[in-house]
Design a protein around this nucleic acid. Structure first.
Lengths: 177, 177
DNA sequence: CACCAAACGAGACGCTGCGTCTCGTTTGGT
DNA sequence: ACCAAACGAGACGCAGCGTCTCGTTTGGTG
């Protein structure tokens, strides 16, 4: 859809603050009513546009037999994606759009964090040497994701190496429990 | 300041979205110019107002000799604060205000996460049985905080017990490293 | 006490963008 | 060939923006 493309362009050109429905309509060569027909508000439109280019989020972690290495690498890839200028900007704008509207927030986490949770959790569950409950696994994965989200939102550095080490450390805690 | 009080009331009554400078001025019995004289934009005003009532964030963790118990309890208190309806709403609005403006974001994390990092890190550093580097300690604390922030932003449950267990698990990983 | 400059409450101003509403015009299915 | 649904365009009234003048307190100085 030309509307989503125009929204993406304007978002990365001028930021979420400056984005007006009128500007999107003009850029997309579209009537305002067409936008309002398909999206109830700006937050939903922004979320759709940013999620359309789903270059966030890595592929599912491999299974080499070493959970620590597999999820460490997976976390590293995720950090590289979220830590890049474009990835960080996207994550921040998604967060802002999500705080505008609870429904949007649910859809966003269903589409972004949900798959991440599932990927990591599946790999964790397949590791027979980690005697963790489902709740403990979920906590650990949320800690890994939360760490990165927090670092990005706080404008603190998020490196591939740092995320990898952090993920391994959290998993070690799971093992030691 | 009456302006900050009025902002707080309107924020918790109608949400960040609905907050207009004009409404704050009217509620506070103040001219608009007075607000613009002291705050450059809405994000800064909102951050100041929400941070004025700094009932977020627990006291520094005790030192009973058991790091796991101390920081577990500390994390539990923090979770109870951030997980309460009012705390969660405050955290979400602060996040939204911070994504509007990078300068505000820095000030916010300096005033909110900074002290938390410092508290937890000091207690960690005092634990002689945790052979962690400064970077590893910082990672662990950011993971604990990030976990809670992420849970709140995602509208997922954040309980005192869950946060306590999660913090202990992360610290165990620090020990096992 | 008298003075004065700085900050104040009030609100007018032009402007941008909102969300709704008509227009007449494609367009795709029957 | 027809028709209803979706479309591009843009007019409309409205809310709130940020700036700008007004007199009017107010607190410090002489």
């Amino acid at each position: 859809m030309a509307i989503l493309d125009a929204t993406n362009e304007l978002l990365h050109a001028h930021g979420l603050e400056q984005l007006s429905i009128e500007a999107v309509a003009a850029r997309a060569g579209v009537g305002k009513q067409t936008i309002y027909r398909w999206w109830p508000n700006r937050a939903v439109l922004v979320a759709d546009a940013l999620l359309e280019r789903d270059d966030l989020g890595p592929a599912a972690p491999a299974d080499t037999g070493d959970v620590f290495a597999d999820l460490g690498r997976w976390a590293g890839h995720l950090a590289a994606s979220l830590g890049s200028p474009r990835g960080a900007a996207t994550l921040r704008m998604l967060t802002a759009a999500a705080t505008d509207d609870e429904e949007t927030s649910r859809r966003l986490h269903e589409k972004f964090s949900g798959p991440l949770q599932e990927q990591a959790n599946a790999r964790l569950a397949a590791a027979s040497d980690l005697p963790a409950t489902a709740a403990q696994r979920r906590n650990a994965v949320d800690a890994i994701i939360g760490f990165m989200v927090f670092r990005v939102l706080a404008h603190q550095q998020l490196t591939r190496r740092g995320a990898t080490e952090m993920a391994r450390s959290v998993l070690r805690g799971l093992q030691a429990g």
